[in-house]
Design a binder for these strands. Sequence first.
DNA 1: ACATTTTTTTAGGTTAGCCTAACTTTGTAA
DNA 2: TTACAAAGTTAGGCTAACCTAAAAAAATGT
Lengths: 168, 168
Amino acid sequence: MGETVNISESVENYLETILALETDNKVARAKDIAERLGVQKGSVSGALRILKEKGLINYKPYSFITLTAKGKKIAKSVLRRHLILKDFLENVLQISDQKAENAACRMEHAIDEETLERLLAFIDYIKTCPRAGDNWLASFVNYYKTHRHDPEKCNKCINELTQLDLSS
Amino acid sequence: MGETVNISESVENYLETILALETDNKVARAKDIAERLGVQKGSVSGALRILKEKGLINYKPYSFITLTAKGKKIAKSVLRRHLILKDFLENVLQISDQKAENAACRMEHAIDEETLERLLAFIDYIKTCPRAGDNWLASFVNYYKTHRHDPEKCNKCINELTQLDLSS
DNA sequence: ACATTTTTTTAGGTTAGCCTAACTTTGTAA
DNA sequence: TTACAAAGTTAGGCTAACCTAAAAAAATGT
């Protein structure tokens, strides 16, 4: 079995940040990592030593930083969790962009694989099923904004629906 | 402003556990806390001292433990987050009981107030709107199990729906 | 080429949260 | 009541993650 590396939240954040910097700036520098993570540069040096020990980054002191294959795999997994969560928060729960971003940052470390995949399926389902799409979401938005709901209207609707074969 | 106490994940877990023990056993004992949290009893002693310093529990060495009003308020908030998340995982995403329980344990520390309330509204909406209820969920279950979906059927359905006033 | 600025590292310190092992207190049963 | 078991505390240690300040290396402008 591929030796698991014991990834802390902190390590996940470093890897995610390095991946983002590689993408944005071609190369990751300690200073930029410190800036994005909101930690001191001294802390970054320590963290880089550990990431290197864990085989997650290529790194020699005073040189630039790149992810190893192993590191990139983890970084991408974290990023994927982030993006899926953000998608759900923004496009299903209708949380604002910035708040969804922040919430995704916190939750990405706590969500497990199975939940994530199920969430992804859920989002896809809503997006590809017209019945659960725009119209349906607009109705949800009205619901949480007004805290009111008229089941009568739903019933009128559902009665029509039961005439059809809805198992899709 | 009511002085905020800086609540770590660990502290949240202690409070949540103490509340559960109060509920289950009338009273919380250090041994049971250790057992439920999977830590050593020595660790519990240290944690209890800190919880007391923070004004979250009533506690004298060698005596039983109760939550203060402040502690109970936080414990209940954590429990509420747990229950709402579990409800969503189990009844919307259809994750199994045990896995939903574990996932909720991890995520309850990461979710923010706004997201939680929105999630609650979402669950309520699904539960109280027949159109988004059982039938709809069954269709989602089929979707994630088969990874297939027939938008044609949806379209047939949505065409009927647009004849009605669906804003509910 | 050299001085200055920027970046990075090093060294030493703090805190939270856990551990173990040894000791103390409490409760119970003979 | 005394002696033992169970529960709780204390003391000392460890690690992860952060901090600051100062030293070292690299990059830059003239």
